[in-house]
Nucleic acid binder design. Sequence first.
DNA 1: GATGAATGAGTATTCATTCAT
DNA 2: AATGAATGAATACTCATTCAT
Lengths: 209, 209, 209, 209
Amino acid sequence: MSQQALFRDQGKGLPKRDRTRLALIDSTVEVIALKGMDLAKISDITDHAGLANGTFYNHFADKDEILQEAAQRVAVEMARQIDEQMRSIESAVTRVVVATTRAIRISVGESTWGAVLIGALQHLPPIRGDILQFLRADLQRGVDQGIFDIELDEFFLDQVASLITVSIRTQIETGDDPVKTARTCESILRLCGFSRAKARKAVAAHTPE
Amino acid sequence: MSQQALFRDQGKGLPKRDRTRLALIDSTVEVIALKGMDLAKISDITDHAGLANGTFYNHFADKDEILQEAAQRVAVEMARQIDEQMRSIESAVTRVVVATTRAIRISVGESTWGAVLIGALQHLPPIRGDILQFLRADLQRGVDQGIFDIELDEFFLDQVASLITVSIRTQIETGDDPVKTARTCESILRLCGFSRAKARKAVAAHTPE
Amino acid sequence: MSQQALFRDQGKGLPKRDRTRLALIDSTVEVIALKGMDLAKISDITDHAGLANGTFYNHFADKDEILQEAAQRVAVEMARQIDEQMRSIESAVTRVVVATTRAIRISVGESTWGAVLIGALQHLPPIRGDILQFLRADLQRGVDQGIFDIELDEFFLDQVASLITVSIRTQIETGDDPVKTARTCESILRLCGFSRAKARKAVAAHTPE
Amino acid sequence: MSQQALFRDQGKGLPKRDRTRLALIDSTVEVIALKGMDLAKISDITDHAGLANGTFYNHFADKDEILQEAAQRVAVEMARQIDEQMRSIESAVTRVVVATTRAIRISVGESTWGAVLIGALQHLPPIRGDILQFLRADLQRGVDQGIFDIELDEFFLDQVASLITVSIRTQIETGDDPVKTARTCESILRLCGFSRAKARKAVAAHTPE
DNA sequence: GATGAATGAGTATTCATTCAT
DNA sequence: AATGAATGAATACTCATTCAT
């Protein structure tokens, strides 16, 4: 289920200006997947989009601006897709497992997204904040429900985020691997105070196959 | 216990050629701490070392080579310092706790080292391998002793390494914090199958104060 | 007595094409006053006029063409306004004093015009010629009347023009100053052979207050 | 008596770094003469000097810095050459005539210098200040000697400077013309209160042929 | 070996101009 | 006519690397 050029597709009915803008953002996402955020050059982005280099500056002030927006859109779209499946889920454990599983699956399946997500977590603090707040909300719910025995601070969020990041990075490199995704969920639950057995069981209960 | 210019000092008796080489490596470590691996320029390194920029190429083929060697030396030296305190420790749990604590403490206290270590883990796969093998050895010991209930593969090592990295990065930014170091050790033990209580107890037993 | 948008106003009854053209010229004059001729961009001109940048090329071949025409119109309009007050003046001295005074006053009061005038004198030889010919006519009259003891050639005109330019430039920068205007007139008369006293008297006689 | 590459010649004994620096400054002066200050590009300067474009940045931070320095050196060197001939001159009139004559002659004969001087007077306020202070000193002397009947302020200096500028500009364009130089001196003296006859006599007394 | 000036490929950015709508 | 998105040549500036001294 490749979603190449997602944003460009979203722009079907829109005016040309917006379509080009989305094409540039799409291109940016793809270039980041190929070379990483640091090495992505403006000319890579415009070349990849089949546009003249000057066109970039009709739409964005500089590289930072498009990185920011590209990451934002990826984050928002991922959050939307994940949230869709979670509206009715009340259990914090289930939410954490499902959200983590979905996030990894989307990031890896749509490998361009994973690269952007990882780049944003490392280099774009505001986006990082946006992403972590979803995580925090579900963890907080577990605390409120009395089932997560944790100190829910920045440091803890960073720990959990790093586990998810490792999982995405590994799977992008070595290929989709549901077992690693499951192990990541288990690790997170263990950090939340679950025993190994309980964690495994909770994850198994909410994993597709 | 500053270790500024460690390698240069090691070179006291050596011929001039070697001393210059070590001075460049020292300088590299310090520059990485200031600007990060990506942004460290050759001229930063030579300027910082008080040498002419052309001198660099009498000793290293390119930037990559010196990064590699600088990271290697930091890793080796850290390993040596940590190992010194661990020769007589048999218990895998103790080894993991002490090694993790020492590694974090050295990386943060000697903050130039932490930056290099993090850079190497991200950008220099061979060094990364060297570092992880120490980790693997101690974890393997725990498996052999029957106290770690884990699947000791690359992925697991990556998870543990990411927890250590997060801890170092956070403490470099916000300052030395023994509590975060202890929490990191606990988290690692939990990933190894320890309950929260047991993890906490094991860490407390081996933490200075 | 602001004369903002003078040319646009002139276009009231004209067809739309001409009104757009005049709006662009007005805008050009204003932009030149803000940023100078060199730094005035096409997009500044169209933005300032509230038009699309492409519209520019429906009316002018290039930047030079509009600069030329804008300067031309400013020069012609200034000449018209000055001439209105001079039709009945026969004395060459009076004509020079009144014309200079009026030219400076208009250029400074309507500061957009001064900037264009100065730009044109420096960068647009044909306009420069147009402007200088008015000056030449009045000076020639003085020669014919036997009261100006000068060699009326290009070089002399350049000298006089440079004195007027200095006056306008200074007053645009530091504010309207009738004393400087008077001193400029006196200087011109001195170059024409008047003694200091005679020059001062002649100027005083024809200066409003 | 062409003085092409003056600064480069000055650098004969100097270290290579300084020689290149002077070569760039010389080149800048020559490029300014060819295209004007506004249009002089870094690549023009390096090409003209037979150097790589990157070399420029080993010596100057940006275009402004080299313009400043080139103008400064031209101004200083001109002042030195003029001053050499004026040390023993006490009379303010003679000083003004000789200095003006020399300045114009050097600027025109060494036409690259004139272009730089004019550029500096227009675009580089600090250099402009340096240049005008020489002028001011001699005029002040005339005031002190009771022979110049002027109000010696910025505006007056601007008037005098503009007459000199006009003369240089004209002679660069149409060729060396001692008569124009003499007329310029006369005009300045007239602005200082001299009658036409007295001005002409004073100038004639101090003009070579 | 050390020096440091010179190099030039690489990258970001601007802006006059074109052209399909 | 007007629009404004797209173009790409022009230009400034960076920095790893070379090489003569």
